[in-house]
Amino acid sequence: MLKKDLIAKNPLRILNQDAKGKQISQRMGLVMSRAGLGKTAILVQIALANILDGKKIIHVSIDQSLDKTKTWYDDIFKDLIGAEHLENAASIAAEIMQHRMIMTFNVSSFNRPKLEERLNDLVQQDIFRPACLVIDGFDFTKASREELADLRELMEIMDLNIWFSAVSHREDDRVSANGIPAPCHEVDDLFDTVMVIRPPAKDQLCNTLNIVKDSTGSAQAGKSMQMDPASLIVQG
């Protein structure tokens, strides 16, 4: 297997471009599901799709350790390769490391000024200029609309794709007009793309990843993809 086959194996690569094949430089995206269905795995696959496309990403982990986050990348990379032999695997793994940076925050201390300060440390010294941020563990139940709007503004200023993960709860059945569940039902207009992971239907094994909303033109709302039950890899 060559690098291009690895890229082709990841269906989430479609999110990098709009329908005309133009790169999407700004987007606020959201991956939602109940606990344990694979949000982090999807964020990592989105990040890998960007990295293999030559872009730099920052993975912001809130309340998760650096090592744990690194392990996610190692595992998903291994699962993407699967049983096949990837040529130059070591140099591709090194490329992933070079294009990825992990930042961990405590849940209480994560906010826009702090994130912006850290990003500026990197960008102004020309150490690392990310094209995409994935933010895992952001607590939507405690975040106000203003805080999210603030982060959206940061996305625009810094010309970024930002992907969030959010946990929904079975007992909270509130949804927005677009079908986006709580706790994000009142802020769904701030997101350009929203994907929801649903547990397998009866007699099925696989979780499905549904694109509920997309205003960037990279995917069609309503599109649904299956996730491998063991590895949580999105199937083409």
Binding site: M101, M103, F105
Partner: peptide, 9 residues
């Protein structure tokens, strides 16, 4: 090559 930054207080 910076692998990551972690906040500890």
């Amino acid at each position: 090559m910076i692998i990551g930054t972690a906040e500890e207080g």
